[in-house]
Design a protein around this nucleic acid. Structure first.
Lengths: 215, 215, 215, 215
DNA sequence: GATGAATGAGTGTTCATTCAT
DNA sequence: GATGAATGAACACTCATTCAT
């Protein structure tokens, strides 16, 4: 059994009181706003503290350094996005494969829409540190089981191979991410959604065909 | 007190002498090395000048500012990658669609391999400035005509729609980029290549099918 | 890459604590000393901070930029000089016109004596920015009413015309300034004072005569 | 007899050939243009050389350093102004004192009008170096004899005292200079000219009266 | 003589972080 | 716990000046 790599202590202290929790929330919200408004360039600890209405000293009481703040924000935003996607998928009405894929795609596009500059900056910073893996992990495992999620019991696909999970998840995320970052006007259009669905469906169908179990 | 009328020129002077050309090359090479070794964080004008073996003043004789240097590097790296891909594609022996796609995929993976951190940093910085479009433009137009490149004359596809070009190019690039950035061990494996080919082929086939011209 | 959204505020923060006020005073005093010792050429933010015994960061905590520091110093020096002149004038014993003019002239010469290089540099810098009007404003309005200040109630002059105020104030200031700048040995002599008084008195008398109300 | 203080060598070489003289002229003209367009801040040796159409090396062939260039320019501009004033005075028609003073005043205002920014910058720089005396010397001696210039033979005044010359010249110059530097709209108005004339005339008359020789 | 590529000390300014109060 | 004044290393960038060609 692999030893869990202990991540370096992120928080200086665990907030035990209601007030402390509020303070942390205020700081994170301020960080997101600053990021949204001015990008990574405007993201300074002093600016965040000021907007949060706390002193710079207080900020450092809860976050060891600037990076810890960024990481905490990244985790918060990512998990929010994942929850949204998960909810969309579990509540899908039509059980047809394509309907479920479409629901997922729509949820992802939606999740990446609001506060796009903040998310973009966070993603950028995270990637720059090579921590992308940690953050994308949940999405990864989610797509790994896409076969079972999609197919009816009879034609259920076996779990995808490592490379297949990788290619599918990164291709999908990559296309959405690029649309967000380049601020493409068609980001929320039906046509774009259609093509994303086509991307996923055709890939899965190809795998299913090769496995002798066409959907 | 630091405000100056600054004409919007990119290069400060066009190198007319052999020595100057060498200097520019040295600076660009140094920039790539610094980026490769330490990422965007280590990319300071002073560090680049020092590694290039020139004074900081000389660096500024050829690049208006730090950003211009980054842009110049980006253009250089991008065009190098594109040339590699183009060559691979034009020189493909087997005219079968899948062979050609495979050649392209292989060239792209190859192109993105060496000096990955430098390329990563460059790409990151470019995207952060919203200049992604300019840099990715050539790749875009390349994929836009993929239909005609791939199909036999009889079944030649019409040019892809804007959203289709976008989704296909970004999905493919996104998957490769992620593999590079996350330093995935399978980056150059046959399995990974196979899946990338599958991604492209299944997508194109799906379009062809919808257009009533199956490959 | 050095571009930032900068709100147009002059002071970065209003000093709320005693220590802060001391720091600001120390910086201003240091600035005056540096200017006095080496003129505008020696006036660098680093030099000022060092002489003030604070870090460069502290200096920037109280002054947005070098210019703001210069402006603050200018305001301080100017108002000090004006207060001196005002005091001299209000406290004059002899109400005879010439006595009052002499008191004013003496106060101005006195005010411009100490720390002449500092004042000179400050004035120079202010003028270079076209802010001369703002700084000289108080002196202007002071001289504008010189007629009423000087004359007995019966012969009180009407307010001077714009051009008259200008010529009289600039002529007087110009002569004093030149004596200071050229370090004329007679700066504080009685003879020099006499001639300045003559300059003002003869000008005013000429105006009074034209207005039909000889003093 | 006082030993003439040998001014530090200004020119590196005395231009002996026509071409060299042209080059020097071009550089000085370029310097004036740069100064006029962008003030002292834009006045860099490289900018001057470029506008003059010569290499920076050539500029340094004729001027030891930046300061020498500035000084040369100052001398040129000053003497041009003086010549203008002298011409105006010698060619005056009406011999009445006030007419002659008016001619002089008008010439001075005129001389300081064109290329005001350049002159302003030059004056500023000169003063900052404490070389004001050298430059204003000619003007000084000009005003010293104003008495004899003005009065008819019978009432000719004796030469003014040192302090009187100083006060009159500096007062007049100061008023004009201030109007130029503050870019006063009335600079060329008749009203302004009238007041300058009044300033000079009333001062001279006062002296004449004290000397028992009213004009 | 002329050129212009190269130099590098020096400037203004930022911002993450500390610590005395 | 909270504050915010103070710190100072680090950075981008300028420009007068030199000197090999």
């Amino acid at each position: 059994m692999a030893i869990k790599r202990q991540l370096p202590e992120i928080k200086r202290r665990i907030p035990r009181q209601a007030r402390a929790a509020e303070t942390v929330a205020a700081i994170l919200e301020a960080a997101a706003q600053i990021l949204e408004a001015g990008g990574l360039a405007a993201f300074t600890t002093n600016a965040v503290a000021e907007r949060a209405g706390v002193s710079i000293g207080t900020l450092y009481q809860y976050f060891v350094d600037k990076n810890a703040l960024l990481l905490a924000l990244a985790r918060q935003e990512m998990s929010a996005a994942l929850i949204e996607v998960g909810r969309a998928l579990s509540g899908a009405g039509d059980p047809a494969p394509e309907s479920r894929v479409r629901a997922m795609v729509r949820a992802m596009v939606h999740a990446f829409r609001g506060r796009s500059r903040a998310r973009k900056a966070v993603v950028q910073a995270i990637l720059a540190q090579g921590l992308g893996f940690e953050m994308i992990g949940p999405i990864n495992s989610f797509i790994a089981n896409i076969g079972s999620v999609i197919g009816p019991d009879a034609t259920r696909l076996p779990p995808l191979a490592r490379e297949q999970v990788f290619v599918l998840s990164r291709a999908l995320l990559g296309a959405i991410r690029a649309a967000v970052m380049e601020e493409q006007p068609f980001l929320q259009s039906r046509a774009f959604e259609d093509e994303l669905v086509r991307l996923v469906m055709s890939y899965i169908e190809s795998i299913a065909r090769d496995a002798g179990r066409p959907l």
